[in-house]
Nucleic acid binder design. Structure first.
Length: 661
DNA sequence: TTAGGGTTAG
């Protein structure tokens, strides 16, 4: 009591004595000091606490936190006020006491914030924090929820191994890791695309005798749907029902989203209808359900139908949110209806929602795709004017926009500025620049960029390695491609189908077709191959004159369940044209149209460029008309070089088509 | 716990 009344001089004297209290004072004196501090805190006399805080010992801070544990906000205020003292900042003991208080009173955000602070700013490992938390449990206010929070804090900052380590140590020390912690860890693995590990950890969890709850089942459905294993997703859904666990709206939404991503919107609509029936009217479609349908229709190229779904949703009393509009803006943009996308932005504002970075990024991206540099710059200016923060997507879109319009040096300068300002955290924009450098056959520049990633602590991903390997293969430098491949394997990255296809292409380009064939055989044995693998091999055989093998491969393609696509036909047409077998090539074009395979500008160039050599003007124009009637939009360069000079006085079908535009 | 935007192959 009397200490509270001491004048400021007295306080300084008290602090000097307090520094030495551990050595010089008896326990009863410490008790007196403790009580004095508590009285001042109860009376909200913060000045006193501010003055004594530099001298507070860790045990004293913990004691004060315990005393006020029933008022978590007051404890947090105390923590902030004593935080100026280095010994307290570094004290794991005091911080963990505070964390336990926060968790006990369900102040999870604050508890997670403190844990993050301990790990990121103060450099404590999750294991050290765990040990301190276990010790805090002596103070009788620790619970398994604290350990759940620690696992969550680890996953929140991306420390996968830290989170797993905490769960492992808890198990060894005889604590039962809660199902919530397992679910959180499984969810984290899904978010970082560690699907293989996801299933391993799930099996591990089951092996310890845990039973799945509704969230675990939802995670399993999510993992399967994301991997396009829909039928297995439905199996888990039925297993869930069999176990007596009632699915919730999230379970349904995940299945509906999976079905939408597979493009089966009819089934998705049926599921939406069944949602209420299966759940006995408990669950009704919500905004997420409708957004999944809207996204499904947009990705199918039907933004108008998607907008009708939104209108239906509004009629049902469900308000669209930012994601609804952002999805529709993207849907209209990718269907080349930017005017409609702008209209949706206006509708969004009329609905009281502010277009966010996702909407701006989408519009800027598609303006660049259209080649409207001025439009993209103007929308970017508007974004800056309205203080909408740019993000990693914005940087990638701008970098690609600059590259696309041939301004690679400007893109590199822009990227370097972002790097210097610590705005680049992921490999995405690097991948874009590396790709453009590779396309320009500047492998030295691409390699420099790859090296700079390591210096900046940005780990290359599979796309980075794949792009480099492909770049080297295309310039015929298989030796360097193999070096990158080995580096990739050293970094524990497993090559994917795209990378294997690049290597097959590299080997074919070097005319090592037999080695390529061995690789393709190995790929087939592991079931990793697709139409690109076949096309690459087919092209390799054709260009090296191995016609028998090419023909054999072409015949076997369908037998092995691979359907020919436009590229397959283009390779065949190019091959026929090289040998001036134009009638046969035309037959292939007709077969393409009959099978709904659209001949494209490559088909056009293959036929016209080869025909123009040693053919009459009449033949060239006839072929041009034939292609246009087959639905091809001619390649601009080929048209100008080959056809245009011949039709000064003759109006062709192409001109008639162009007039209609 | 679920929904939106940017990268790679022939």
């Amino acid at each position: 009591m009397f200490l509270a009344l001491l004048p400021s001089k007295g306080i300084h004297f008290f602090i000097r004595g307090f520094h030495l209290c551990k050595q010089l004072t008896s326990p009863s004196t410490e008790d007196i000091i403790f009580k004095a501090i508590c009285v001042n805190i109860r009376q909200k006399k913060w000045k006193f606490l501010d003055q004594v805080s530099p001298a507070l010992t860790n045990s004293m801070v913990s004691r004060i936190f315990c005393e006020f544990q029933s008022s978590p906000l007051l404890v947090l205020e105390l923590y902030t006020r004593v935080g100026g003292c280095k010994s307290v900042l570094d004290s794991l003991e005091s911080s963990c006491t505070l964390i336990c208080v926060m968790v006990k009173y369900k102040r999870y955000d604050e508890a997670l914030g403190l844990m993050n602070e301990l790990m990121i700013s103060k450099g404590y490992s999750p294991s050290e924090i765990l040990e301190a938390l276990v010790n805090s449990s002596d103070a009788n206010f620790s619970s398994s929820a604290v350990y759940d929070a620690l696992v969550r804090a680890c996953t929140q900052i991306g420390d996968t191994e830290g989170a797993y380590d905490v769960m492992k140590k808890l198990r060894i020390q005889g604590f039962r890791v809660s199902i919530y912690a397992w679910n959180n860890f499984l969810n984290h693995l899904l978010k970082i695309d560690e699907t293989v590990r996801f299933w391993m950890v799930y099996k591990e969890m089951i092996s310890y005798g845990y039973y799945e709850n509704v969230n675990t089942f939802n995670l399993l459905i999510n993992a399967l749907c994301k991997g396009y294993k829909l039928s297995e997703g439905f199996s888990v859904f039925y297993r869930m029902l069999k176990c007596g666990i009632v699915p919730n709206v999230v379970s349904f939404n995940m299945l509906i989203d999976g079905v939408c991503r597979m493009g089966d919107l009819d089934l998705a609509l049926e599921l939406v209808k069944k949602m209420e029936i299966i759940s006995n009217g408990i669950f009704k479609p919500n905004v997420v359900t409708y957004n999944c349908l809207i996204n499904g229709y947009c990705k199918l190229g039907k933004p108008e139908t998607a907008e009708e779904i939104m209108n239906e949703m509004i009629k049902m009393g469900i308000e669209p949110n930012e994601r609804t509009f952002a999805t529709l803006v993207d849907g209209y943009s990718r269907s080349e209806c930017l005017e409609q996308a702008f209209r949706l932005c206006d509708n969004m504002v009329e609905s009281g929602l502010i277009p966010n970075s996702v909407v701006y990024n989408t519009i800027i991206h598609w303006l660049y795709v259209e080649g409207d540099m001025n439009g993209a710059s103007s929308v970017l200016s508007d974004m800056i004017k309205r203080c909408i923060s740019s993000d990693q997507f914005t940087h990638s879109i701008l970098a690609k926009g600059l590259c696309r319009s041939g301004h690679i040096n400007e893109a590199l300068k822009f990227h370097n500025r972002n790097i210097e300002n610590n705005l680049v955290e992921e490999p995405f924009s690097h991948n874009i620049l590396i790709n453009y450098l590779c396309k320009n056959k500047n492998m030295t520049g691409a390699k420099q960029l790859l090296c700079s990633m390591f210096i900046r602590g940005i780990m290359p991903d599979l796309v980075t390695y794949g792009t480099m390997i492909d770049g080297y293969c295309k310039v015929g430098d298989t030796k360097s491609a193999v070096e990158v491949y080995m580096d990739m394997v050293k970094m524990e990255k497993n090559p994917n189908l795209v990378i294997y296809n690049s290597v097959v292409n590299g080997l074919c380009k070097e005319e090592r077709v037999d080695v390529a064939r061995s690789l393709v055989d190995a790929m087939k044995r592991t079931n990793i191959y697709d139409v690109v693998t076949f096309n690459t091999m087919f092209n390799g055989y054709c260009s090296t004159g191995k016609f028998e093998e090419a023909s054999h491969l072409f015949v076997n393609m369908r037998k092995e369940g691979i359907l020919a696509n436009t590229v397959t036909c283009n390779i065949l047409i190019s091959f026929l044209c090289k040998f001036r077998l134009f009638q046969q090539a035309k037959k292939v074009v007709k077969a393409m149209v009959a099978q709904d395979l659209n001949p494209d500008f490559v088909t056009y160039t293959a036929l016209l460029a080869n025909l123009s050599n040693k053919s009459s003007s009449e033949e060239v124009i006839k072929m041009h008309d034939f292609m246009v009637l087959a639905g091809v939009i001619p390649d601009d360069e080929t048209y100008k070089a080959v056809v245009s000079p011949l039709i000064k006085e003759t109006s062709t079908e192409f001109d008639k088509v162009m007039d209609r535009f």
